[in-house]
Amino acid sequence: MNTVARAMLTIASALTLGGCVSATIEEVRTGPAASALAMESPIVVLGRRHNNGYETESQFVDCVGKNLKATKVLPEQQFVDALYPWFEPRTAPLGTADLPRLFANEAVAKRVEALGVRYLIWVDGVTNTTDQAGSMTCTISPGGGGCFGFVTWARDASYEATVWDLETQQSMGRISSDASGTSYMPAMVVPVPIIARVQAQACSGLANQLDAFLSGAPPEAS
């Protein structure tokens, strides 16, 4: 096997290897499931960004929206722009108790009606690196280069989605998605990353459960 083929094989192996991820999904239903008719209207997935120490990542919110299959999803920025200034981090309603006051504003109610949005999903949470260890040294010289060492890090993703029905102005329920996993990167000349796709797992788990939640299916065991 020549050098190029060996390098290609190493890269392919690295791409296919994945670290272990453990995920937990929990669901609390506080209102009736969405009707089939209501599911024809678009929904919006919004990220919470008012917290001091963290803000829900935009790419995670996008990921959840793209993975929802049950209904059409309106892009977050389009919704926030259409309802400016009412859904900025400082002005967005924090609970369903704020909705009557918001919808008392006729202009807001009309704009939401024009968009046709019935359900709103708030996603709150963050992915953190909880632990890291090891070291790696890379050198480059006229004769070539390489890395040697071993690095490991653990990540924890914890998110909660709250579903609001804008018509009844009530919360329909909450779904939490937690995932954690450890990634490794051994290096013997070439680093081989074995990545635990923690955030992606939390995203797909949350989106699948939201699909089931909105369609009224019973919660899946996780």
Partner: peptide
């Protein structure tokens, strides 16, 4: 955007 939202 935040300042504008507050004023508006």
């Amino acid at each position: 955007r935040d300042a504008g939202a507050f004023f508006a």
